[in-house]
Design a binder for these strands. Sequence first.
DNA 1: AACTCGGGGCA
DNA 2: TGCCCAGAGTT
Length: 221
Amino acid sequence: MKINNKNTKKIDCKDIDTLAKIIIERFPRDHCEKDAYKVLITTILSQRSRDENTEVASKQLFEKYPNVESIANAKPEELYELIKPAGLYREKAERIIIVSKILLEKYDGVVPNKLEELLELPGVGRKTANIVLHVSFDQAALAVDTHVHRISNRLGWVKTKTPEQTEEELKKIMSPQLWGPINGSMVEFGKNICKPISPRCEQCFLTECCDFFKNKYNSKT
DNA sequence: AACTCGGGGCA
DNA sequence: TGCCCAGAGTT
């Protein structure tokens, strides 16, 4: 089935907000689960793992250990089989147990809504923390994962080596209201079209604004 | 800055 | 069979 553009007016390739909105509109990502604790644990499980496997793992986990108290009191070995589909299951099991204990001891079992406090939790880095801040606390948090880093560079929005640099530069050129939703949409866009290897440029709606696409036909290397 | 953890999906 | 995935911690 074909996708027809409603309006045929040309895209302004310098208007990054508009381009971002197009991506967000075409690749919406619903976050049905907003409970901060479940989002936090699920996001830790999702690190270096595919969505489908993460979903299975977190479902199995919360079925037997439905809240922060039960996970805090669990032993790592008890969680191995439940979260195994997500991979890296030994580290993740230990980390979510320690995280749960810290939440109970320091935060009365409630997930903090400040970046610095989230970053103190083991297994929580900038990407995981910003996803929680956006999904659960509705903050203007920009989570730069491999998709955001790759696609932002391909489109020529930034020229950066590390995700940290991408986060810094992207914040300068994109409206804060888009920081939250752009991440999830970039993930979907990146999985379906702008893939790491053999991207489907023939299906892409942004080729006229894409440095990567243009260079494919210029470079001889 | 490079290395490592890891099961599952896909080419 | 080889490579990659909503990364983070260690060296």
